[in-house]
Amino acid sequence: MVNLSGNVMFRRLHNATFVEWLVLLLGVVITLVGVAFVIGGVDLAMLGGSFYYAICGLVLLAGGVFIILGRTIGAFLYLGALAYTWVWSVWEVGFSPIDLLPRAFGPTLLGILVALSIPVLRRQDVRFSNKGAV
């Protein structure tokens, strides 16, 4: 019995590790997008353009780094940035699909992945705080 449950445990851990790596990758992607948003967004804002990218970029950057660190707060930061993106997009161009395509389509796809990663991050959160407690 012990052996068997240990085996199951091992397999779960093994699977979890793979998913964790996927979530890590997601975090890296979001961090990079955030960096690009901040660099380009500051440039754009200084040229008299929209402030959206600079602001959103900071949130994305923070969210991405927290996801890389395995913290659930990172996912919520991303989802916050996504909500901000939608509000800003609709404010700027209304519900025109062709205009929403570049603004919201990609970020929403990423958002679905982020939402799916929340349980994984929760588990890591627990482990993280356990380690922290020890």
């Binding site: 380009g40 754009l44 990218y53 395509l101 570049p102 990609g106």
Partner: peptide
């Protein structure tokens, strides 16, 4: 653009 990134590039 296809994404906010190329849209940002074009805005700049």
């Amino acid at each position: 653009g296809m994404s906010p990134l190329d849209q940002l590039y074009c805005r700049i």
